[in-house]
Computed example of a mutant assay.
Amino acid sequence: MFFGLTIEKVILIAVVGGLLIGPERLPGLAAQLAALVKRVREFGQSAQGRLKEQMGEEFDEVDWKRLDPRQYDPRRIIRDALIEPVLTPGGKTPSEAALAAARRPAAPAAAVSPAGAYDTENGRPSSVDAPAAPGSATAPLPRPDQSS
């Protein structure tokens, strides 16, 4: 049931309540409870009638069982959200788009100026076009095994 109450607990509460109230007041309280239930039903029916009247024909088209909040399980919602693929503007999932980008050939590198060129074979800046003047910042450094 609800609030952790089983049918056995509800029956036990009703029996204890009946004993505490007593046989004199029990019929009057039962009649009050019946009137309360009747008013709640009438209120629900009138609210449904007003809603039908305001919505018109659309009221019959709504699938009310689909909107029942008791059917929503947060675990299922999260699982479905994680399984559902998210598409990028190209129509691919993010992982497919990343794979396609990784497989594309790299764009040719821009030409590097002689000041920024570096000779990995010799471990020193390289002179790409022409040797620079001795003593300048771009002048090739002598190799350690060469004497100057």
Score class of each variant (00 low, 15 high):
L33D: 12
P27L: 02
A47Q: 14
A30E: 02
E58C: 06
R41W: 07
G56H: 04
E57R: 06
V40I: 14
E58F: 01
L26E: 10
K52Y: 00
V40Y: 12
Q32P: 00
A47V: 10
R41T: 08
A31M: 12
R41I: 08
L51M: 11
Q32G: 05
K52T: 02
L33F: 15
L26V: 06
V40H: 03
R50M: 07
R39L: 06
E58Q: 15
P27V: 12
F43K: 05
G44M: 07
G49C: 03
Q32F: 01
K52N: 07
V37Y: 00
M55V: 03
L29G: 02
S46P: 00
A47R: 05
L51H: 09
K38C: 02
F43M: 09
R25W: 04
L36A: 15
E42F: 08
P27M: 05
E42V: 00
K52I: 02
P27K: 01
E57A: 11
L29M: 10
G49T: 09
R39M: 10
M55T: 00
L33C: 14
R39D: 14
F43C: 05
R50Y: 00
A35E: 15
P27I: 13
G56W: 03
R39G: 13
L26P: 01
Q32I: 02
R25Y: 05
V37I: 14
L36N: 11
S46G: 08
L26A: 15
K38S: 13
E53H: 07
V40R: 10
K38H: 05
A31L: 14
G49A: 15
S46W: 03
R41N: 08
V37N: 12
V37S: 12
A31H: 05
Q48Y: 02
G49R: 14
L36C: 07
A47L: 09
L36H: 11
E42P: 00
G56M: 03
V40F: 08
E57Q: 04
G28W: 05
A30S: 06
S46N: 14
Q48A: 15
A31V: 06
G28N: 08
S46R: 04
R41P: 00
L51N: 00
Q45M: 09
Q54H: 04
G56I: 10
V37L: 15
A34W: 00
R50D: 09
A47M: 04
R50T: 06
R25D: 15
L29K: 07
A31C: 03
P27E: 10
G56K: 14
P27Y: 02
A35V: 13
L26Q: 10
R50E: 01
E53L: 10
A34C: 07
K38R: 14
S46L: 10
L26G: 11
E58A: 14
Q48N: 10
G49N: 05
E58G: 03
K52H: 04
G28H: 02
Q32V: 04
V40L: 09
A35K: 12
P27D: 08
A35H: 09
E57C: 03
E42C: 01
M55A: 06
